[in-house]
Simulated assay, not measured.
Amino acid sequence: MKRAGNACGRRRYGGVVLKGLVIDYVGVLTDSGANELYAYLLAARERGIRTALLSNAPGASDEAKRTLDPFFDALVFSGEVGVAKPEPEVYLLTVGLLDLPADSCVFVDDAAHNVRAAVAAGMAGVHHTSVGETLTELGALFSESG
């Protein structure tokens, strides 16, 4: 894996500047210490990283969507779009909503098969096992230094 910094403080992954972060809900954003992930999402958005939630849930209430809105540029629920992880179409639909190519996005999920599917669709992948490990991986992929 080749990573090189750039003037914007973002790192290159395979020669592409990473500009998008797609993250699962249950198992990642519901994990103990997830408040740190939410803080990371806000900081990432402030740095120009586009963010999306991708969940295999049937949908979410308007209240739940309002709660999630500050953290994400797009909310994708499989039950609402008619395709679910690990189908490649759902990853491509999600990055399309961010107006980004798949190879400029990172996908985070606690299910390894979903991460493998995202990588097969062209994204970088992070298998979430703990909040600390995920933040370490994201910090390496999205450099915070200038």
Rank of each mutant, 00 (worst) to 15 (best):
67 T>L: 15
128 H>P: 04
79 G>M: 13
7 A>S: 10
92 L>T: 00
99 D>V: 00
78 S>D: 10
87 E>V: 01
3 R>F: 11
123 M>S: 07
3 R>V: 07
32 S>I: 03
39 A>L: 08
74 A>I: 03
16 V>R: 15
112 A>G: 00
32 S>M: 00
30 T>L: 03
132 G>V: 05
140 A>P: 02
17 V>N: 03
3 R>Y: 04
95 V>K: 02
99 D>E: 12
111 A>S: 05
106 V>F: 04
33 G>Y: 02
87 E>L: 08
73 D>I: 02
125 G>C: 02
133 E>D: 15
144 E>L: 14
106 V>H: 03
50 R>G: 09
2 K>S: 05
63 E>S: 11
134 T>A: 10
136 T>E: 15
25 Y>P: 00
144 E>G: 15
75 L>N: 07
16 V>A: 14
92 L>K: 08
116 R>N: 09
135 L>I: 06
10 R>S: 10
121 A>M: 03
141 L>D: 06
121 A>L: 03
25 Y>R: 06
144 E>N: 12
19 K>V: 01
111 A>H: 07
102 A>W: 05
88 P>S: 10
137 E>N: 10
9 G>N: 08
83 V>W: 07
90 V>Q: 04
10 R>E: 09
99 D>G: 09
146 G>F: 11
136 T>S: 15
15 G>P: 05
5 G>C: 02
76 V>E: 10
3 R>D: 00
7 A>E: 12
69 D>C: 05
79 G>R: 11
124 A>F: 02
17 V>D: 11
26 V>R: 12
101 P>S: 10
4 A>S: 11
64 A>G: 00
70 P>L: 07
138 L>A: 10
52 A>Q: 14
69 D>E: 14
44 A>I: 07
42 L>V: 08
105 C>M: 05
7 A>R: 10
34 A>G: 01
33 G>S: 03
36 E>L: 05
28 V>F: 03
92 L>F: 05
96 G>N: 03
60 A>K: 08
69 D>W: 06
96 G>F: 04
69 D>I: 00
38 Y>P: 02
44 A>V: 07
9 G>M: 06
32 S>C: 00
108 V>D: 03
140 A>W: 14
23 I>M: 14
48 G>V: 15
77 F>N: 09
43 A>H: 12
110 D>W: 02
6 N>R: 12
51 T>Q: 11
23 I>F: 01
77 F>D: 08
85 K>A: 11
128 H>E: 05
26 V>Q: 11
139 G>L: 11
15 G>L: 09
13 Y>H: 12
